[in-house]
């Protein structure tokens, strides 16, 4: 048995004078969550569309579950599920009707289909809304139905194209947990595209960073981050209520200190190397009677990786790389979509 779910060979897609995907060679292992990370327009969606048999490659090829995406597209379609950027739902149909329609397209017998629909609806806590029209749902509710729609045929390989785009924080975290659970319990191979570093970091076993159609880096999130930091580095944001210049100086003098930057009256951004770095920082402050109000870990994020590799920032506005669970974007900050 081949242990790769997806293998691409010089996969390329051109649109007139634009090369959307440029000779991509990746292997996605069975049962892993593989992240495709890149800014808008990097070629993530085109990549997914090719691997879903929705568009032909201009050059190169790929196999999905061992089947060729061009020659054996019918076989590929039976193995895959797709949650695309645009929701695949009909507003005037109820949740149940939407699921039934797509189930019927997969020739699932009626009894099995009903059972599966009920089971999936329960999994995303939507069983109460079975008979309501999708059009009356919030974006978060819609996306839950949209995600389970892709699971009706129990796909071996699931594509998730920006699955949390435009969702509220609660729905975002629920969808993320659902993805994780799905991967752990069913061993479903998941290809996830996102432009959010945090999401890739949280969910993915391996991440491919894509920029201008090319895979510029591919590794586990931890390795990618290590690549930037260049070893065992701790970064923290410490809030010391009675911060003194003396304390700052002492921290700078610490044997493993890399950099200390003061931000505002009481905040210090500290980077230090070694296994004891965290303890050393705390000790140094406490020894000088510093009152620590909070410490936030500032791990080098995948954003740093992207910046490091491509030499540019992913978003115009890179805020503090604080690790929180609020990675969702409000509807107002929805980025412009590419119409492909």
């Amino acid at each position: 048995m081949d242990e790769n779910a997806i293998v691409t060979k010089d996969l390329t897609k051109r649109f007139k004078d634009l090369v959307a995907v440029d000779h991509v060679n990746i292997n996605v292992k069975k049962g892993e969550i593989f992240g495709l990370l890149g800014p808008n327009g990097a070629g993530k969606t085109t990549m997914i569309r090719m691997l879903c048999t929705l568009t032909y490659p201009t050059e190169g090829t790929a196999t999905v579950g061992g089947y060729d995406i061009v020659k054996e597209d019918g076989k590929v379609r039976e193995l895959i599920g797709l949650v695309s950027e645009k929701m695949i739902m009909y507003d005037r149909l109820t949740a149940y009707e939407n699921l039934k329609l797509f189930g019927k397209l997969y020739n699932i017998p009626k009894a099995t289909l009903d059972e599966r629909i009920n089971h999936l609806l329960k999994l995303v806590h939507m069983e109460k809304w079975t008979k309501s029209q999708i059009g009356t749902f919030s974006t978060g509710m819609k996306q839950r139905i949209n995600v389970i729609r892709a699971l009706l045929n129990v796909p071996e390989i699931l594509y998730l194209d920006e699955p949390t785009l435009g969702l509220d924080p609660q729905s975002t975290s629920e969808i993320r947990e659902f993805i994780k659970k799905l991967n752990e319990e069913n061993d479903t191979t998941i290809i996830l595209t996102t432009h959010q570093m945090l999401e890739a970091d949280m969910l993915c076993d391996r991440v491919g960073i894509i920029d201008k159609g090319k895979i510029v880096a591919l590794d586990t999130p931890a390795n990618l981050k290590r690549m930037v930091a260049g070893g065992n580095v701790t970064s923290v944001d410490v809030n010391v209520t009675n911060l003194t210049p003396e304390m700052t100086a002492a921290l700078k003098d610490m044997r493993n200190s890399i950099s200390v930057v003061q931000e505002g009256e009481s905040h210090l951004l500290i980077r230090a190397s070694g296994d004891d770095a965290f303890d050393d920082i705390v000790d140094t402050i406490r020894q000088r009677n510093g009152k620590i109000a909070s410490i936030k870990s500032l791990e080098p994020s995948l954003e740093d990786v992207f910046l490091h590799i491509t030499g540019k920032e992913m978003r115009a506005e890179v805020t503090k790389k604080v690790k929180t669970y609020d990675g969702g974007h409000g509807p107002g900050s929805r980025p412009a979509r590419r119409g492909r």
Partner: peptide
């Protein structure tokens, strides 16, 4: 984008 849902089905 709903056409994709049908196109991606076998």
């Amino acid at each position: 984008g709903t056409l994709d849902g049908m196109m991606v089905a076998p």
